[in-house]
């Protein structure tokens, strides 16, 4: 039963045309939900959450730093999975996703580095340190940039997807290093205080706005990916009848 359902989903979402119809139904409500959630979390965190007893108000950078960092890491995992499916099964939608997921992920990795550095100065006394967490995060940004660059350099889209897919798969190792760098080696960066399982060690008055802005930014990431994937699908399927009709009627 479950297997059958999964197989049906795989085939449906693997079809560019089905994806296009599906995403045009999802976007009109996902977009406002993402924006409202993100703004709620940020306003709550910036103006209403209590200040930290040690850091004062500089800690409020957390409400964008942690959502951006976790988004960049999750996005890269999704990029790795798309890369694997694109390289092994040559699935068209995986190739599309490989292209759609990377840009916003790169932006989030950059945000993570910049906000982290601006938080580090008042807290640690330095903007930057070549320690494990920061260095591996910088490599994550380079991996994103590499995947995007490969796709732009190779003209033939299917070949580009193969090359970028391989690079995406290799880079997954780096995600593991980023995640565990704070536990394996001594770094300036603190360990995680937000736990999915078990008890978080962050104050609940700070935890809820953080979780809400995290959810909001992830949803906005999804919106960004859907928009990019739709244009890529329309371009790749431009000779098909359904895209031709779509253009002629100016439909969604």
């Amino acid at each position: 039963m479950v297997w059958q359902t999964l197989k049906r989903w795989y085939h449906m979402l693997g079809s560019p045309r089905y994806f296009h119809t599906f995403s045009s139904r999802v976007l009109p409500w996902l977009t406002p939900i993402a924006l409202i959630t993100l703004l709620t979390g940020l306003v709550w965190g910036l103006a209403f959450a209590p200040s930290d007893y040690q850091q004062g108000n500089s800690y409020r950078i957390i409400f964008i730093h942690v959502p951006a960092s976790s988004g960049a890491l999750m996005g890269y995992m999704a990029l790795g999975v798309s890369g694997l499916v694109a390289v092994v099964w040559r699935m068209k939608m995986a190739e599309v996703m490989l292209k759609a997921i990377a840009p916003f992920g790169a932006a989030l990795a950059a945000i993570s580095l910049i906000t982290g550095s601006l938080w580090g100065k008042p807290t640690w006394g330095t903007y930057w340190q070549w320690d494990a967490r920061m260095t591996s995060m910088l490599i994550l940004l380079f991996m994103y940039v590499g995947v995007i660059a490969l796709q732009n350099v190779i003209r033939e889209p299917r070949q580009a997807a193969r090359a970028a897919g391989l690079l995406a798969i290799v880079g997954v190792i780096n995600v593991v290093i980023v995640k565990y760098s704070v536990e394996w080696v001594q770094t300036l960066h603190q360990g995680s205080t937000l736990k999915l399982f078990g008890e978080s060690t962050i104050n609940p008055a700070m935890k809820y706005p953080l979780l809400i802005s995290m959810l909001g930014l992830w949803l906005l990431y999804a919106v960004n990916v859907l928009i990019r994937a739709r244009s890529e699908v329309e371009w790749r399927e431009r000779r098909s009848k359904w895209v031709q009709t779509l253009i002629r009627t100016g439909g969604k």
């Binding site: 940020l42 004062g56 108000n57 500089s58 950078i61 964008i64 906000t115 601006l118």
Partner: peptide, 12 residues
């Protein structure tokens, strides 16, 4: 933002 307005607002 206490004394940290520059850092917080530049980050955002």
């Amino acid at each position: 933002m206490g004394k940290h307005g520059f850092f917080v607002w530049t980050a955002y």
